[in-house]
Amino acid sequence: MFAVRERLEALAARLAAERATAADVAALRALLEQGREATERQDLPRVAELNSALHLRILQISGNPWLSSIAKALYLHVQWVFRLGAAERAPHSWAEHIQLVDAIESGDGDRAERAALAHLEAASAAAYENAEGGYGVAGGHRPQA
C-alpha cells in the first residue's frame, strides 16, 4: 500500500503545487486547523477522517481525474491503517501535513514531492512498527511492498 501511495501522492503533491489556487490552499489550511483541534482533543476517529480528507483534497487539487479515481479506493485502507497508530502518530502526521501544504502553497513541485515522500516514509515506518507490535502482521514479519 505504501509503495503505491508513494507514487500517487508524490505525483499529486507535485501537480497540486503547480495548480493550486489561493482558495485551494485556504481549504487545505482549514483541514489542517481541524486536524490540529481534533488531535488536541484526542478525537482519533475524526483525526483519521481528516487525514484522509486532506490527502483526497490534494489529489483533487492535482487536477488529474485518473489519479483521484485510483486513490479513492486506496484511502479506505489508509484510514484503517492510520487509526491503528493514531494516538502516537497524529501529532507528527499533522506537522508533516503543514510542511506538505506549505510546499504546495509555494508552487514548487519538487519541494511538494519531497514533502509528500518524507511524510509517507514516516507514515510507513510508523505503520510497520505498529504491525510488528502485534497489530495484524502474523509473526511480526514486515509485509513486502
Rank of each mutant, 00 (worst) to 15 (best):
Gln99Phe: 10
Ser106Asn: 07
Ser52Arg: 15
Arg46Lys: 10
Gly35Met: 07
Glu40Gln: 09
Glu33Ile: 06
Ala86Gly: 09
Ala38Asp: 10
Leu28Phe: 01
Trp80Arg: 15
Glu49Asp: 13
Ala87Cys: 09
Ala20Gly: 00
Trp94Asp: 07
Glu33Gly: 06
Ala22Met: 05
Ser124Asp: 13
Thr39Asp: 00
Ala16Asn: 09
Gly63Gln: 03
Ala86His: 12
Glu132Gln: 11
Ala17Gln: 08
Ala10Met: 08
Gly35Ile: 02
Leu28Tyr: 01
Leu8Arg: 00
Gln34Met: 10
Arg57His: 12
Arg36Thr: 08
Glu88Thr: 13
Arg89Gly: 12
Val25Ser: 01
Gln60Asp: 13
Asn64Met: 05
Pro65Cys: 08
His77Asn: 12
Lys72Thr: 12
Ala23Val: 09
Leu31Asp: 10
Trp94His: 06
Gly109Leu: 03
Ala26Leu: 05
Leu100Phe: 04
Ile104Arg: 04
Ser106Pro: 01
Ala125Phe: 04
Ala71Ile: 04
Ala125Cys: 03
Ala48Leu: 03
His55Arg: 08
Gly134Ser: 05
Glu49Pro: 04
Val81His: 12
Thr21Glu: 06
Arg36Cys: 06
Met1Arg: 04
Gln99Leu: 14
Val47Gln: 08
Val25Gly: 00
Leu100Cys: 10
Leu59His: 11
Ala71His: 09
Ser68Glu: 15
Val81Lys: 11
His92Ile: 11
Ile70Cys: 12
Ala53Thr: 11
Ser52Asp: 14
Asn64Lys: 07
Ala17Asn: 00
Leu74Asp: 13
Gln34Cys: 09
Ala3Ser: 14
Leu84Asn: 11
Glu96Ile: 13
Leu117Lys: 10
Ala90Glu: 02
Asp108Pro: 05
Asp108Gln: 03
Leu44Lys: 06
Gly136Ser: 01
Ala13Glu: 03
Ala23Thr: 07
Ser124Tyr: 10
Leu28Val: 02
Ala126Gln: 06
Gly134Thr: 02
Ala103Tyr: 00
Ala48Pro: 04
Thr39Pro: 04
Pro65Gln: 00
Asp102Pro: 02
Val101Phe: 09
Gly109Phe: 04
Leu84Arg: 15
Thr21Arg: 02
Gly139Cys: 10
Ala48Trp: 08
Lys72Asp: 14
Val101Asp: 11
Lys72His: 15
Arg5Thr: 01
Gln99Trp: 10
Leu120Gln: 07
Ala71Met: 03
Asn130Tyr: 12
